[in-house]
Design a protein around this nucleic acid. Sequence first.
DNA 1: CATGAATGAGCATTCATTCAT
DNA 2: TATGAATGAATGCTCATTCAT
Lengths: 224, 224, 224, 224
Amino acid sequence: MDLDGWEGSPPPSLANPALLREPPATERGVRTRASLIAAARAVFERVGYLDARLADITAEAKCSTGTFYLYFKNKEEIFAAVLAVAEEEMRHPGMGRVADTGDPYAVLAASNRAYLETYRRNAKLMALLDQVANIDPAFQRLRRRRAQAFIDRNARGIADLQKRGLADPDLDPELTSRALSMMVSRVAFSTLALDEGGPPDFDHLVDTLTRIWANALRFPDHRG
Amino acid sequence: MDLDGWEGSPPPSLANPALLREPPATERGVRTRASLIAAARAVFERVGYLDARLADITAEAKCSTGTFYLYFKNKEEIFAAVLAVAEEEMRHPGMGRVADTGDPYAVLAASNRAYLETYRRNAKLMALLDQVANIDPAFQRLRRRRAQAFIDRNARGIADLQKRGLADPDLDPELTSRALSMMVSRVAFSTLALDEGGPPDFDHLVDTLTRIWANALRFPDHRG
Amino acid sequence: MDLDGWEGSPPPSLANPALLREPPATERGVRTRASLIAAARAVFERVGYLDARLADITAEAKCSTGTFYLYFKNKEEIFAAVLAVAEEEMRHPGMGRVADTGDPYAVLAASNRAYLETYRRNAKLMALLDQVANIDPAFQRLRRRRAQAFIDRNARGIADLQKRGLADPDLDPELTSRALSMMVSRVAFSTLALDEGGPPDFDHLVDTLTRIWANALRFPDHRG
Amino acid sequence: MDLDGWEGSPPPSLANPALLREPPATERGVRTRASLIAAARAVFERVGYLDARLADITAEAKCSTGTFYLYFKNKEEIFAAVLAVAEEEMRHPGMGRVADTGDPYAVLAASNRAYLETYRRNAKLMALLDQVANIDPAFQRLRRRRAQAFIDRNARGIADLQKRGLADPDLDPELTSRALSMMVSRVAFSTLALDEGGPPDFDHLVDTLTRIWANALRFPDHRG
DNA sequence: CATGAATGAGCATTCATTCAT
DNA sequence: TATGAATGAATGCTCATTCAT
C-alpha cells in the first residue's frame, strides 16, 4: 500500500494540454519558457493564484507581455505547466516504491513518511493546488481523478489485508480508503502547507497518522 | 464527544461585522435586507462566490444597485450575512446535545450522524464556504478558529476516554482529534457537497466513519 | 474709503434664492432649517465644500435625508443659506462705517483693521468661500459683482483724494483700487484663512498693509 | 528683483511623480503620451478640472481608456504632467534674467512685464492651476512652496534696496514682498485669466502695477 | 523570437434625489 | 413635517488579450 499519488497531484491529463504546444524550437525559446514557469511558480506561491496577474509573471520573468502568449494560452495553462514541472521534480528523488517487507505496519509507516516528506518539500505548491482546485473546475476534476486513483489503490490494499485476515473485515474498503486517505492529505495540508503555529514535530506526525491508520484497520497488534 | 461545531462554520466574530450596521429601522427595510441575503445565497450557490456579480444579486433580489449598498459594504460582507443567517437556521433543528448514554460508541455514532445530517442539508453552502475560505483570508482565519474549537473539544473527549481506559493511551489526543475530525469533515465535503457520483448511502457513511473513529481510538469491542 | 465689502462676500442676489422659499411656517420648521444650516457650515468647514455629502449634513443635523429637501434644493442652495446667515452675523458687530475724521491715513488704517478683523473671525468660512467661488460659476459671478462694488467704492475714494491733491495723480484709480484691494484680501486669505505657520502678528499685518496702501497712493507723509 | 517664479507655478517636486514612471520605450509611446497630455490640457481648459472626465480626455486623444492608465495613474497625475510640460514651454521663451541696468525701476518694470506676458500667454492654464490648487491639497502645498520661494527672492531684493537707501526702511521686507507679489499675481489672474470685460490695456496694466510697487517701496522719484 | 503599446469589456461603488408612509 | 428606503445614472479603474513592429 502506498500513498505516493497524493490527493490533488496533477494528473498527466492536465499537464498534457500544456505539452500539446510543441516545445520551443530554439535553445533560447526553451530558456524563456522555463523562466516563465519558474516566475509563475514564484508569483503563485507569493500572492496566490487568484491575485497573480500575468503582468506579475512576465515582470518576474523579465520578459514582455507578448512573450507570455508565445508559450501559454492563459493563466490556467501556465499553472498546469508549473504543476507538470513540479511533478517531474517530485518523481526523481527516490520516490521509488517502498520495499514490501511483508510487515504491513512498516509499509504503511514508510509510505506515509514518503508522502508527508514530499508534501513538506512542496508545501507552498500544495496549498496552491488546493486553492486552485477549489476555484477552477478543470483542476478540480483533475485532482478528483488523481485522488481517486490513489484511493482505489489503497482500497485494493485494504481489501487484500482483509482477505489475509489482517484488517477489520467489517469495513468498506473503498470508503475506508477514502476516509483515511483524505485524513492524511488534509492533516498534511493543515500542518505543513498553512504556515500557522510553527513547524510540527514531523516524526510525531508520521507516527500518529500511521497508528491511526493501523488502529482503524485493526491491524494485529504490532507493539510488544 | 460531539461534532456540532464543524470545520468551517462561521464564528460569531465574522458574522458580527455584518451585524454592526444597525438593523433596518422599518419593516420594509428588514424585508429588503432579508431578500438580498436570500438572493445572495441563491446566486452564490448557483454560480459560486467568485463568479457572483453584485448585479446578479440585486437582479435576483429585484432591487437596484444602490439598495445593496444600503445594507452591505461589499460581497464579503453579504457573504458573512448569508453565513450568519444559515448558522441561525442550523442551530434550531434539534442540534441539541446528543444525550450521553454512557456508551461512547453510541454517543460517537449519534454525533457523527447529527453532523453529517446538518452537512447534507446545507451541502451547497458548505461547498461554498470551503471555496471562500480558500480565497478570502478573513474567512480562512474564521474557519480555522472555529475548527480549532471543535478539535479541542474532541481532544478533551479523547483524553477523557484514555483516562477511563477506553481509548488507546498511546495516541496524542490533540493530533488524533485533528486527524479524525478533518477526516469526517472532508469526507462529508467530498461525498455530500460535491455533486459527483450520485447520493451515497447515508447510513453506510455514518456507520463507516463511526467505526473508523472507534477503531482508531481502540474502543473496547462493541460488537457481539 | 472703506473695505467692508470684502472680495468674495456673497452678494444679496446669491443669498436670495435661498430666501425665495418662504420661511418655514411652524416654529419647529424654523428650528430644523436652522440646524441644517448650522450643520452644513460645520461640515463645510470641516471637510470642504466638494467633499461634503448631503448625508454628512443631515447626519450632523440629526435629521433624515428627506428633510433636507424640505428646505433646500441642493448643496449650492444650502451653501448660499450658510453665507446669508454668516453675512447677517457679520453685519451686527459694529460693522458700522468708520468715522471719517478727515485724516485719510487714519481712515484707511481703521477700515483695514475692521476688514481684517472680520476676516479673522470668519477665516474658515472665508477660505470656504474662496474655494466655492473657484468651483461654482454662480458664486464666482456673485463674488465678482460684490468685489467690484467694493473696488468701485475704493476707486471713488482714490479719485477723491487725487482731486484733493492727497494722492498720486498719475495712478488709474480703478485699476489701483483693484490691485490694492486684492492685495489686502489675498494677504488676509493667505495669512488668516490658511492655517500655516501659526497666527501672524495681527497689528503688524494691519500696519504694513496700511502703510503699503498709503505709500502706493503717495499720501503726504503722515509720520513725524 | 524679478517675478519669474510666479505664485502657483508647479514646483519640480510635483512634476516629478509624473516623471517617475519611466518614459515610454518607443517613439510611438512617446507620441501617445504627448497626445494624452495635450488632450488633457485642452479638456481641462475647456471644461475645468473637476468636470473633466477621463473619458473626455481619452476621446480627445483618440485612444482607449486602458491606454490612459498606461501612462498615468489618475486625473491628478496627468494634470501634474500638463503642468510640467507647460512649465517646460514657459522656461524657453526668453525667460532669462532681466538685465540689471542699475535702475531699480527699470528692473521692476521689466520683470513685471515678463511675468504678466507669461501669464497672458498661459492664462487659461493659470486659471486652471488656481482652481486645482483650491481643490487638491497636494497642488496647494506645491503652489505654496513655489510662491514662497518667489516671495523670498523679492523680499531679499527689497531688503537690499532698503540697505542702499532706495526703499522705505520702515517696511517689513518679507510681508511687503508677500503683499505686493500677491497683488500682481492676483490682478494678473483677475484681468488675464478670467474672461470678463474684454482684454485690458496690457501696457497700462504693467505700468500701473509697476508704479504701485515703486510707490509702495518709496522709490526715489523716477519721473521728471 | 521578442517586444510593449493599444484595446475595451466588465465591474464595483457613490450619492443626489424621489416618494410612499 | 419628518422619515428613510429605494433608485440608477455616472464613472474610475483593471487586466487579459491582440497585434504591429
